[in-house]
């Protein structure tokens, strides 16, 4: 199954999920996206920037706390319109899945699906 198909499946399986995007935190590029309707590229890049900012803060705190590597691989941002759930790969920390949902309750399901996807991408499947 291709990444695009995996993202489509993920979106279909998560209740209230309207968008799933696979992106790169370093470049800020949304590489593959599955969405109910077309989103502007600017929006996709903006939410990736938001993810990058928050993970950078987490990493800075981890480093100050004496941690050997990055900790905290999930970020949730809730606005009155939507909830964005960001899950990044533990092995390749620039890989990120951005999910736009109705509420934050799906974070566990988003994290499980995202980590499975990351695992399969590095040849675990």
């Amino acid at each position: 199954m291709s990444i695009s198909e995996r993202l489509d499946t993920m979106r279909g399986n998560i209740p209230g999920c309207s968008l799933v995007s696979f992106g790169d935190l370093t470049t800020g590029l949304a590489l593959r996206t599955s969405a109910g309707y077309a989103h502007k590229q600017d929006y996709l890049e903006d939410i990736l920037q938001q993810a990058a900012l928050n993970f950078a803060v987490s990493d800075a705190l981890s480093a100050e706390g004496g941690s050997a590597g990055p900790q905290g691989h999930s970020v949730i941002v809730a606005t009155p319109d939507e909830v964005r759930i960001f899950i990044r790969s533990e092995k390749c920390v620039s890989d990120v899945i951005c999910c736009v949902c109705d509420d934050a309750q799906s974070v566990g399901q988003v994290a499980a699906s995202a980590h499975q996807l990351f695992h399969d991408m590095v040849g675990g499947a």
Partner: peptide
């Protein structure tokens, strides 16, 4: 817009 973020 108001927003609420959860992070490590």
């Amino acid at each position: 817009k108001p927003s609420c973020t959860a992070l490590f």
